[in-house]
Nucleic acid binder design. Structure first.
Length: 411
DNA sequence: AGGTATTCACATGAAACTATTCTCTGAGTTAGG
DNA sequence: TAACTCAGAGAATAGTTTCATGTGAATACCTGT
């Protein structure tokens, strides 16, 4: 984010010096911007005391050198799962240190590509977390397990492993790793391992090996989404720390939380919205954040999100998107798979790219649908067959930007 | 009129294929003893 | 001689293709009144 801003700034090179001077001279709206960062962990977490209590009581036996039960947390994005878990673990860790209990925690976000998305990498990361670095590549997976186990079992200790976004991991590489991890304890003489799984997807646990399921799901904690009121209070507490007094005008927080409440009560989004709104207000030399800034911020975030998605799509997918846009240029309303495929073929020929089969294009279209760029619904037109009805969900004012990015990436 | 059959235009699944990336082994290299 | 590096074989993976089968309802076709 910061980088992009800087780039934008650099366009006005002539008065750059002046700008920076002004920037320093001016008082920032922010008192402490860090508070609005996603990774920030507040000292007190509101509206989650029940879950934290629950977490604490499940994990507390670690302080008596007993193995806590395995634990599974689920709730939608931005419902505080990760936050609460890390918070609780931090506290636990602090006390353990005071009492000289050997307790280690390892947090692993399985979503991160190239870091923890294969069996090898997961185990390597875990080994890293408990203090043995393992080469990034070159060893047999089994060997890494052995190193890991050996290090684990070195002394009497409790180890709590947190696997965040565990559903992504299982989707990608199956539940083999989980199975091994849940069965790790009998192999250890000294150490004991507790697993904490965090997942966005409630149904995820259903499609997992029943043995893993019963073992991992010894305890479950559910994180319901925040409602607008709770979001508002969360925002309030953060805003108090983040902004100077009087910066926030009436109704701003309400609006922010209302926006986020629409998105299944995603607190992360609400906070990001507030931060971006703050940045926008600041750049406008406004002395306070007003409701309109929230609207602008919302549009900006949405735009960035869409552009980011489009940019990171593979070429073929971009081509399909391009085809859809081109068709819609000369035609209002809805279009069908067949048309898209035709246009897509044409585009490919023009570009000299190889043409994918209709089968694949059909899949690509439904992928674009899941990404939220288009809306593709299967409908039956009776005698005239079955197809997907496609229309855009992107608002018109970003469309030009989208086309621009597509062009840039395709030529 | 009412009911059944057909038919369209893809959707959806499964399996097979392919190119790329990862994992793993062993030969070769290096450095320290 | 132990530790390290690195090329290349083999395995795993992601992205596709091929082949096969499925789908929902507008229309065509009957059927008996």
């Amino acid at each position: 984010m910061e980088q992009k801003e800087l780039e934008e700034f650099s366009e006005k090179k002539d008065n750059l010096m002046k700008f920076f001077k002004d920037f320093l001279a001016k008082e920032s709206l922010f008192k402490n911007k860090e508070v609005l960062q996603i990774k920030y962990i507040p000292d007190s977490i509101i509206h989650r005391s029940k879950q934290i209590e629950n977490l604490a009581s499940i994990l507390a036996p670690a302080l008596r050198r007993e193995k806590p039960s395995n634990l599974f947390c689920y709730g939608k994005t931005g419902s505080g799962k990760t936050l609460c878990t890390i918070h609780t673990l931090n506290k636990l860790q602090t006390i353990a240190k005071e009492k000289q209990i050997s307790l280690k925690t390892a947090y692993l976000n399985c979503k991160l590509k190239k870091i923890a998305d294969t069996e090898y990498r997961v185990v390597a990361q875990l080994a890293g977390a408990i203090g043995t670095e393992v080469p990034i590549t070159g060893l047999p997976t089994g060997e890494v397990y052995n190193i890991f186990l050996k290090k684990l079992d070195e002394k009497k200790q409790i180890i709590i492993i947190v696997l965040d976004e565990i559903d992504q991991l299982v989707n990608k590489i199956g539940d083999g790793v989980l199975y091994t991890l849940t069965r790790i304890n009998p192999e250890l003489k000294n150490a004991q391992v507790t697993l904490v799984g965090i997942s966005n997807d409630v149904r995820f646990i259903e499609n997992v090996d029943p043995r893993v399921k019963s073992s991992l799901g010894e305890e479950e904690i559910i994180f319901p989404p925040y409602n607008a009121l709770e979001l508002r209070e969360i925002l309030q507490s953060r805003a108090k720390l983040a902004f100077r007094e009087g910066v926030i005008t009436e109704g701003v927080l309400e609006k922010c939380s209302a926006y986020a409440a629409l998105e299944h009560g995603d607190a992360r989004r609400a906070i990001e919205l507030l931060r971006v709104a703050g940045e926008i207000a600041e750049r406008e030399h406004s002395l306070r954040i007003e409701e309109k800034h929230i609207d602008i911020a919302e549009a900006k975030i949405e735009r960035l999100r869409i552009l980011e998605i489009i940019e990171t799509q593979p070429k073929q997918s971009q081509l399909v998107m391009c085809a859809i846009l081109l068709i819609l240029e000369n035609k209002e309303g809805r279009i069908e798979t067949g048309e898209v495929f035709e246009k897509y073929t044409e585009l490919c020929k023009k570009q000299g790219t190889n043409i994918l089969t209709q089968r694949r294009v059909s899949d690509l279209i439904s992928e674009l649908d899941t990404l939220g760029l288009i809306n593709a619904k299967v409908i039956s037109k009776g005698r005239y067959g079955r197809t997907r009805e496609i229309y855009l969900t992107i608002s018109k004012d970003i469309l030009d930007k989208v086309k621009e990015t597509l062009k840039k990436h395709l030529y």
